[in-house]
């Protein structure tokens, strides 16, 4: 047993080494109060819907979420807009389709089966429109950053005036949570930049929380199902382990020996 603990100790050292070694960034991330974190964690439906609104009205002008489809907005475990609402959202966007019978491409309103319309036609256009900085696709952004939801949340709230010893070029902003503290995105959120229809006050914190919740769902759309399954699987495994344990005792009792 002692040996086992020893091994566990070293193993945990190893894990820590692997996954917490961001030496460059000393600022401690803000911890959001996430409803999806715990063992039974679920998304806050209202927050997801507000988060979509923030994404749509603020982020979407530069950032794509190319792996989401409009149908996802009505799927279980997501924002769960009604089918009509999701259709109405989709129809606000124009997608290029075709070619038609005369061989020409045409635009039509988006349908549920369409992927989210991207703000730029390609990466190069995205870069040139943003002073050379590529606004990353946000489909799996939460999973693509160390610190996950907390990191994005911190970043959104991490804009400050730069310390006196730091010179910033034009179009570069100071953010205490960004790698190297310099970021080419200006602070995207400010109080009341969107107007929530459910009466929630649109503070910067609230919007950050909502949009990060939305992005977490975008990156991990089956999170709720995963948590639900996980609970069932583990309960099942514990029960069957106990059954097998007693079966084993029974079988081994046929010979005189400890297991």
């Amino acid at each position: 047993m002692k040996k086992f603990l020893k091994i566990l100790f070293f193993a945990s050292l190893l894990l820590n080494a692997n996954y917490a070694n961001s030496a460059e960034n000393s600022a401690k991330l803000l911890k959001g109060d996430w409803s999806f974190k715990s063992f039974f964690g679920k998304f806050d439906r209202a927050s997801l819907q507000r988060g979509y609104q923030v994404y749509n009205e603020v982020c979407a002008s530069c950032h794509s979420v190319k792996y989401l489809s409009y149908r996802n907005l009505m799927e279980k475990g997501g924002p769960e807009f009604t089918e009509e609402e999701a259709k109405a959202i989709a129809s606000n966007f124009e997608v290029t389709d075709g070619p038609n019978s005369t061989g020409e491409m045409f635009t039509r309103p988006a349908r549920l089966s369409d992927k989210f319309v991207m703000p730029y036609a390609n990466d190069e256009e995205a870069k040139s429109a943003n002073g050379g900085a590529y606004p990353p696709d946000m489909s799996v952004l939460v999973k693509a950053r160390k610190g996950g939801a907390d990191y994005i949340y911190s970043l959104l709230l991490g804009y400050e005036d730069p310390p006196v010893d730091i010179e910033l070029d034009d179009g570069v902003y100071y953010n205490k949570f960004m790698y190297g503290n310099k970021i080419k995105m200006s602070a995207p959120l400010s109080d009341d930049i969107v107007e929530y229809s459910d009466g929630t006050k649109a503070t910067t914190e609230q919007m950050s929380k909502d949009v990060v919740t939305f992005l977490m769902w975008a990156a991990e759309p089956h999170l709720e199902q995963r948590h639900k399954f996980g609970f069932r699987v583990i309960i099942y495994l514990v029960i069957i382990s106990i059954l097998v344990y007693f079966s084993m005792k029974k079988i081994w009792s046929r010979i005189e020996s400890k297991v």
Binding site: Y236, L243, V244, F246, I251, I255
Partner: peptide, 27 residues
Amino acid sequence: MSESDKKKPNRRDFILTATTAAGAVGV
């Protein structure tokens, strides 16, 4: 340690039956 070990588990054995059934459900 020879012949009696080869005996199949007792059919009336509740715990073994329950384990097998639960295992089948899991699989």
